[in-house]
Design a protein around this nucleic acid. Sequence first.
DNA 1: TCTTTATTTCAACAGTTCTTGAATAGTTGA
DNA 2: TCAACTATTCAAGAACTGTTGAAATAAAGA
Lengths: 125, 125
Amino acid sequence: MDRSKALAALSALAHETRLDLVRLLVPQGAAGMPAGQIAQALGLAGPRLSFHLSALEQAGLLTARRVARNVIYSVDPAGLGGTIGYLMNHCCCQDPTILAACGDSHHDPSSACRQGAVAPGTAKT
Amino acid sequence: MDRSKALAALSALAHETRLDLVRLLVPQGAAGMPAGQIAQALGLAGPRLSFHLSALEQAGLLTARRVARNVIYSVDPAGLGGTIGYLMNHCCCQDPTILAACGDSHHDPSSACRQGAVAPGTAKT
DNA sequence: TCTTTATTTCAACAGTTCTTGAATAGTTGA
DNA sequence: TCAACTATTCAAGAACTGTTGAAATAAAGA
């Protein structure tokens, strides 16, 4: 993960809709989710969803595969993990106070992830 | 760290100049760096630097304090750590493949941080 | 082949962000 | 108070991003 890739990924993540997309898809793992179901879960119009999905895909955070009529989107673990790793590596720098703040958030009980997969139609923060 | 704060922080980080600013300031720790020295290190014009510094400050990633003629900027560990922690918490979700990718990047030998403070004028990626 | 379903692409518009140079404000020491 | 230094604010224009609706593409089943 170099700087330009990290920038592209951060830029993609820095949007409400796209952050919600990632948070919806992470719990689905490699199985992913078809575009139509994502649209329903987040209440997005087709073109708008497509725009944001392709932004995330171009940033290396998602992968897409066609299965019959559907296009299944899933998180690219290397892209997402690499982005977080870049921040840990370049902006955290083993600084104890920053690491402590990472850890504090890590115990945030509001984490959606810990409660397993997000059911369609319930993906609101 | 809630979603809107995390979004603001990600939005601020998703810019070449501002990412460089953070990477320059992290190794300085609480001591920080005066604006003029930052401008010199990154080769930025005054107003441009000021624009980006205040963007980072508004996003909760930097703090500023005046010392005599200088304004000293330093990283806000809670803001930066909280942002990374938010990603760990909401977009990593203990998923082993994502965590592995975080870890891979974490061992990136190109990390500027590990080599200590960045000297003025050498702050290039 | 025709129809239906699923999804993407395109173009236009609105709004936001970034850069630049000029002007302004705060601090120090003579 | 005045000059020098440090940093910020302001305004204008260029560039970029996001939303919307219409049209197009792709696959499946009758």
